[in-house]
């Protein structure tokens, strides 16, 4: 399955719904989306990964890149993920310490720290 992307706004947060597979082939599309959002002045992003079926290190690299971009504007990038197989990749690479990971979009939108 290919990558699917859609965005919506909740208050001052921009939710990016990601579905399908994020790998070496599809990750550039996600990178473009994040770059475009930041260039358009959206600095508080919530990436909803509940429908992501596969994520590899290329995808992680894109998310880290997104985090760097929003931080340059004192923004935030929060992830929503409950899937153990996806969370495992964040743990292996130590990125659970880098990204705030939430159980739901509502929780991520409400978070301020």
């Amino acid at each position: 399955m290919d990558l699917s992307l859609s965005t919506r706004t909740v208050g001052d947060r921009t939710i990016v719904d990601v579905g399908g597979e994020i790998d070496v082939y599809t990750a550039p599309k996600l990178r473009e989306q994040l770059v475009e959002l930041v260039n358009d002045g959206n600095f508080h992003l919530v990436v909803d990964m509940e429908r992501v079926e596969f994520l590899d290190s290329t995808g992680l690299g894109v998310l880290v890149g997104g985090l760097k971009r929003v931080r340059a504007h004192e923004g935030s990038l929060r992830l929503v993920c409950n899937q153990e197989r996806i969370l495992k990749i964040f743990r292996i690479t130590g990125l659970t310490k880098v990204f705030p990971i939430h159980n739901s979009v509502d929780e991520a939108v409400a978070a301020t720290d």
Binding site: D56, S57, T58, L60, G61, G65, I89, I92, T93
Partner: peptide
């Protein structure tokens, strides 16, 4: 530099898995 970093992260994922 990002490409290099991704290569290294790929190996890190493999050895962690």
């Amino acid at each position: 530099p990002p490409a290099e970093a991704e290569v290294d992260m790929g190996l890190a994922v493999i050895s962690g898995l």
